[in-house]
């Protein structure tokens, strides 16, 4: 017997898929933000060799398709380094590094957006390089970078859909399965698309709210 009709359980499946997508998105975002910020700090300290290496890796990650990166980690790494790789592991590694590469670029440009005179003034007052970074640069750079970061995260949320290709049961994969079972592509992909759309809008709204708060100190107060 074929179960070709939609059943109430499909809603549970969709919710599970959405959960996997959101969970992986949050996890890779946190790792990516941490790594990207760390790379930015390494560049701020002008660590020789390491800075050039990071810049090179970030350029490669930014300028190649995420799908190929996924294939490299999921198919290439196990064959070459002789290790076991589950689809979820491969997805977390790839998406985290990819996010980190873009976060790194944003971190670098937002650090550079702060005038050199501020850094020099702080140094003259005897602050160490770390204190300058922590108390002078970080608060301003954070407020500056929230806008680009939000745009990046909205994009990265959509990029998570690619992990369905290596078999992670995320929203897109659930959609593909439902599509194969019910043969109703219009309904299935519309529902999946709407769920992704709402998730993206949620990220954008939260980002805008956070940016407004962080920029409150410099907002126009009115006459």
């Amino acid at each position: 017997m074929r179960y070709a009709e939609f059943t109430p359980f499909d809603l549970v499946l969709l919710a599970q898929g959405l959960g996997v997508t959101v969970g992986l998105f949050l996890a890779t975002t946190l790792i990516g933000l941490f790594l990207g910020a760390l790379w930015g700090v390494i560049r701020f300290y002008r660590t020789p060799v390491l800075t050039q290496f990071i810049t090179f890796v970030a350029e490669i990650l930014k300028n190649s398709p995420v799908l190929v990166q996924l294939f490299l980690v999921f198919f290439g790494f196990p064959a070459f380094f002789k290790l076991n790789m589950t689809p979820v592991n491969a997805a977390v590694i790839t998406l985290s590094l990819n996010t980190a590469a873009f976060v790194y670029v944003i971190a670098v440009s937002s650090i550079e957006s702060i005038g050199r005179d501020q850094v020099e003034a702080a140094r003259v007052f005897g602050l160490t390089r770390w204190q300058v970074l922590r108390h002078v640069i970080a608060p301003q750079a954070l407020a500056f970078s929230i806008g680009p970061l939000t745009a990046l995260l909205v994009n990265q949320l959509q990029v998570t859909s690619l992990i369905s290709v290596i078999g992670v049961m995320d929203l897109a994969k659930i959609g593909a399965n439902l599509n194969l079972r019910t043969l109703q592509p219009f309904i299935v992909w519309t529902v999946v698309g709407v769920l992704y759309y709402l998730a993206a809008k949620l990220v954008a709204t939260l980002g805008a709210r956070l940016e407004k708060r962080l920029r409150a100190h410099s907002a126009f107060r009115g006459l």
Partner: peptide, 21 residues
């Protein structure tokens, strides 16, 4: 707004599986 906030792979499957319908 729609096409920027929906993953490309979903759009692609929508067209690829949907148009023959």
């Amino acid at each position: 707004d729609l096409f920027r906030n929906v993953p490309f792979i979903v759009q692609l499957f929508f067209f690829y599986y949907g148009l023959p319908e």
